Amino acid sequence: MGGRAFNFLEPGSFPRIPTPVYQPLKARFQVLLQALYVHVGVPTEAPEKPDHGDLDFIVCTPITRGSLDSVNVPHDQVKAALGATHCILVDGNQTSNFAVPISRDTWRSLDHDGASTETFYQVDVHVCADKNEWDRIMYFHSYGDLGMIQGLIARNVGLVLGVNGLKYPNPPHQTLTLNQDFSAISRFFGWSIERRNAGFTSRQEVFEWVINSRFFDASCFRTSGDGITKVKAERTMYSDFVTWVKDQVTAGVVDMEEYGQRRERVRKEALEEFGCLEEVETTVRIFEARRQLKQVFNGTSVNAWTGLNGHWKAVKVVMDMVRERHHGEGGILQILMSEGENGVKQRVLEALRDSEFSPPTENSSSHGIGRLVY
């Protein structure tokens, strides 16, 4: 609901805006903002929505900048253009809020029972860093909760879909961004961009469009659990979709093994589709090699290979020599990956031979050291 940002104003200062009022109002403010920003848009509203809490504008590329590196038009210019009397202003790639007084001459229905409370429209202006971000936000936030519903479908196949595109979670490794082009992402999921661009006149049409994804399976569709964020109660379109899906199928036992295998098939297909399979496989291979390196190249192993019999100072010197010769842990890792454990052992023994230490003999001291420089 509008006005949440302006909690210092009286309750009731931001009435809901009926759709017949909202549409011409949106068009008027859009024209005003287009004099300030190159790209100005409002995400397409959810179908069958009777009223609105505020007006949300997505903008980028100032026509007049506050400074050379600024992504904002100077706030005072935006405030003046909108005719706002109260503002909550944020610089940079953020959202600023503007309270614009409602004229009772243009909205006479508000003049009820002699009410004295001044009323406002809340106009939110979100400034994007660039046109690519503008495109993503305009797509993901169109048609109400549709973007969140698409994200839920992605979660069911082990992927993450949000305003920053499609991502591949791969714990304990860093999450990988697969693609940020929603046209390409939609093609991968089997969502018709042409149908979406034609628009929806009802929630039912939205729901039918989104389940056309080739990865949607109502019989094992999860709406909660690991990896799925709980959605706020006011997201009624999202909640209605969840209820609608549950009504489509008869409850039964889900084969979790098959469910897991299907997820992994889709995840691999996503990597192949967006050219990231080799990158992920390399990441996993290096991760496993690093873990193995810790098991192979450590004091205990080097002590055993060299026969230094627990003279840990000598062990450290040999290990440091190996690191220096092979440019640190990364170089040793490459030896392990290409030659295996024996390759690392060979480098350790080479360092031992070139060090001040000799392998232990029967006449060695208790530390097993033949030559040692202190």
Rank of each mutant, 00 (worst) to 15 (best):
S224N: 13
G330W: 04
H367I: 02
V160R: 08
R155P: 00
E269S: 09
G92A: 12
T223C: 14
R104G: 00
Q23F: 00
I58M: 05
G199A: 10
S13P: 01
E362A: 15
M256A: 14
V315S: 08
R195I: 13
L9C: 06
S70N: 12
T44G: 06
V210C: 03
P47C: 11
T19S: 08
R323P: 02
L372A: 12
Q30V: 01
V59S: 03
N212W: 08
R291I: 09
S183T: 12
T229E: 12
K345P: 02
D240C: 05
F120C: 08
V317F: 04
F6E: 00
S202E: 10
G307Q: 08
W209Q: 09
N309P: 04
T243V: 11
Q94A: 14
V231Q: 12
M148E: 03
E257A: 07
A154N: 11
Q346M: 09
V160E: 10
L277E: 10
Q150F: 11
F57Y: 12
V317Q: 05
C128H: 01
T175Q: 10
Q94I: 02
L271D: 03
S103M: 05
G12S: 03
R195M: 08
L32N: 08
R155F: 03
E281M: 11
K316R: 15
Q334M: 04
R325P: 00
G227K: 15
R371T: 15
S70C: 07
R263Y: 07
E341R: 10
T306F: 00
P50I: 14
L277K: 06
T361F: 05
T175M: 13
C87S: 13
F287I: 04
E362V: 15
S142Y: 02
L178F: 06
V157S: 02
P20R: 04
S186C: 10
E341D: 10
L32K: 13
Y259I: 07
L36D: 12
E272L: 13
T85H: 07
N303G: 12
R263Q: 15
V125H: 00
K26Q: 09
R235M: 08
V38P: 00
L89H: 04
Q261P: 09
E324W: 05
W305A: 02
M319D: 00
W305K: 09
D145E: 03
T223V: 15
S142N: 04
D226Q: 15
Y168D: 00
S109E: 14
T119Y: 01
N309A: 14
S192A: 08
V245S: 06
L308W: 00
A351V: 11
V123W: 00
E362C: 12
G190M: 09
G162Q: 06
Y22L: 01
G53D: 11
R16T: 05
I228T: 06
D124F: 00
Q204T: 14
G368W: 05
H326M: 07
P15V: 05
E281V: 05
Y37F: 15
L159W: 05
V71H: 02
Y121M: 07
N197W: 09
F188D: 06
E356V: 06
E279Y: 08
Y143W: 12
L55P: 00
E362H: 14
P101V: 08
A304I: 02
G66S: 14
P20I: 03
S213N: 12
S116D: 13
N212C: 12
L293N: 08
Y139E: 01
M256D: 12
G12K: 01
P50W: 10
H112N: 07
N156S: 09
E288S: 09
T64Q: 13
M1C: 05
I369M: 13
E234P: 02
K316F: 10
